[in-house]
């Protein structure tokens, strides 16, 4: 005869009542659940507080002229920061044009082509780069781009240098998110494509990338959001300007350029009410721009599938 279940355990299970009791483990369970809720709420406080404060302060000083006018001199009324919006768009655009193709292709190399030994070092380097303080990216772009332009007598500070600094910051985010999303594509997908006689390029381009596209777009949006809020690297590279950026002729493009982040930094610390109001409005626009980028990219992905 097989060993029987111990008599005691059996009898308590069948005869004990099934109502909730305040046994230690039930109590512990309740306390831990409450603690988790509390921490969740605490984490939401700074998030909501910052957003709502920016929204309240920003909306009250927002009007149409902030988009069309240039920053006012101290002590004067009105004005806007249309040049800073344009400058931010230009620099983030340059940064994305550099970082997105390089980052996505690098991630494809990592997951699809390279050997495990190389991969480890490149992933490590990417992680280090993502932890580098943004001011160092600024110094780097200053040394690489600004000083080169000075040497060539083309000018000095420029949106190109700003774009390069932001690209350095975007790159590790794009590589990491793309790398992770490509790894999540099941290997059965690759085998199915290869089994149909697809070449490596056809497999990656036709099957793996489309499957990973939503995650890649999310990563790129995150990177754009991070880059558009960066201030320190732009102080070294694009500086600031009270004038509109000039795209043509090219010599005039290489000139100090305004950006929303630097405008907020400059105007928030001056003692003039009007400038402070504009800094709040610019903060709000910056948040809304990031939000808009996120919404548009999600919408675009949904249209595609």
């Amino acid at each position: 005869m097989p060993e029987s279940i111990p008599e005691t355990a059996n009898s308590t299970l069948t005869s004990g009542n099934l109502h909730r009791s305040l046994s230690p483990r039930t109590l512990f369970n309740e306390v831990m659940t409450a603690l988790a809720f509390l921490c969740g709420a605490l984490a939401l406080i700074p998030l909501l507080a910052v957003l709502s404060y920016v929204a309240i302060q920003g909306f009250s000083s927002l009007n149409f002229s902030v988009f069309t006018e240039l920053p006012p001199p101290p002590m004067s009324q009105g004005g806007g920061f249309g040049n800073a919006i344009a400058g931010t768009l230009i620099m983030v655009g340059i940064a994305a044009a550099i970082a997105v193709p390089v980052g996505v292709l690098a991630a494809i190399y990592l997951t699809e082509f390279s050997d495990p030994h190389t991969v480890r070092w490149i992933r490590f380097a990417t992680n280090v780069l993502s932890g580098v303080p943004s001011i160092i990216a600024g110094v780097f772009a200053y040394g690489i781009v600004v000083l080169t332009f000075v040497g060539l007598k083309w000018g000095s500070y420029s949106p190109i240098a700003g774009g390069v600094a932001l690209a350095v910051l975007m790159l590790p985010i794009i590589v990491r998110t793309t790398d992770e999303s490509l790894q999540l594509v099941p290997s059965e997908m690759r085998q199915a494509a290869v089994g149909l006689g697809a070449t490596k390029f056809q497999t990656v381009w036709g099957v793996v990338l489309p499957a990973a596209l939503p995650a890649i777009v999310t990563g790129t949006t995150l990177a754009v959001a991070r880059a558009s809020g960066e201030t320190a690297p732009l102080i070294f590279t694009a500086l600031f300007s009270p004038f509109w950026p000039q795209i043509w002729p090219p010599q005039q493009f290489i000139a100090p350029t305004a950006s929303l982040a630097v405008l907020v930094y400059n105007f928030a610390i001056v003692p003039f009410k009007n400038q402070q109001q504009l800094a709040w409005a610019a903060s709000l626009i910056l948040v809304l721009m990031v939000l808009l980028t996120s919404i548009i990219s999600r919408w675009a992905i949904r249209q595609r599938s």
Binding site: P186, E188, M189, Q191, A192, A193, V194, G195, L196, G197, A198, T199, V207, P210, A211
Partner: peptide, 20 residues
């Protein structure tokens, strides 16, 4: 091998249609 696989099809254990 690419030419080989074009002539010899494969069906896998787990159904694996593309996300298309």
């Amino acid at each position: 091998p690419v030419e080989v696989r074009r002539r010899i099809g494969m069906v896998f254990q787990k159904p694996n249609p593309f996300p298309k």
